[in-house]
């Protein structure tokens, strides 16, 4: 079965991204396909590579990145939500004249169409939020 995952909340503030992570990991372990993980609203903060949690806590960003690498996950950060919140990749920095980037390379910034497309093509859309 093909799942699409939508995450509406940022890391540490809300459990949504933890639940989404464990659901995604479990689905993959059971042999399902996760066609896309889409980060929306404050969920875009899950992609900040400069995130620095205390050493004894889970590293939510790296954890997503490792899962993505192991399973070739397509992790997409919504461009409109990211721009509002200052989540930036090289392309966005250049287009908007920003002096820094902060997105982890495991994620890519793209449009909302990616969420709709994932919902059209997947068997299930799973939404995790506040």
């Amino acid at each position: 079965m093909k799942f699409a995952i939508q995450i509406n909340e940022g890391p540490y503030q809300h459990q949504a991204t933890d639940t989404a992570y464990h659901f995604t990991k479990s689905a993959l372990e059971k042999g399902h396909e996760v066609s896309r993980v889409f980060f929306y609203h404050d969920g875009v903060y899950n992609s900040s590579r400069i995130t620095t949690p205390p050493q004894d806590d889970r590293h939510i960003v790296n954890r997503w990145a490792e899962l993505a690498e192991a399973h070739s996950l397509d992790m997409v950060v919504c461009v409109a939500a990211a721009q509002r919140r200052g989540v930036v990749d090289d392309g966005e920095a250049e287009r908007n004249g920003k002096d820094a980037t902060n997105i982890h390379p495991a994620f890519r910034i793209s449009g909302l169409g990616q969420l709709i497309e994932a919902a059209v093509e997947a068997d299930r859309l799973m939404v995790f939020g506040d």
């Binding site: 929306y40 609203h41 909302l112 169409g113 969420l115 059209v120």
Partner: peptide, 19 residues
């Protein structure tokens, strides 16, 4: 909260997908 506005943005983009 921003949820209403940002969900409306999804609706507008989604309209192009002919669902």
């Amino acid at each position: 909260t921003v949820y209403a506005l940002e969900s409306l943005e999804v609706v507008l983009i989604g309209a192009a997908f002919d669902q």
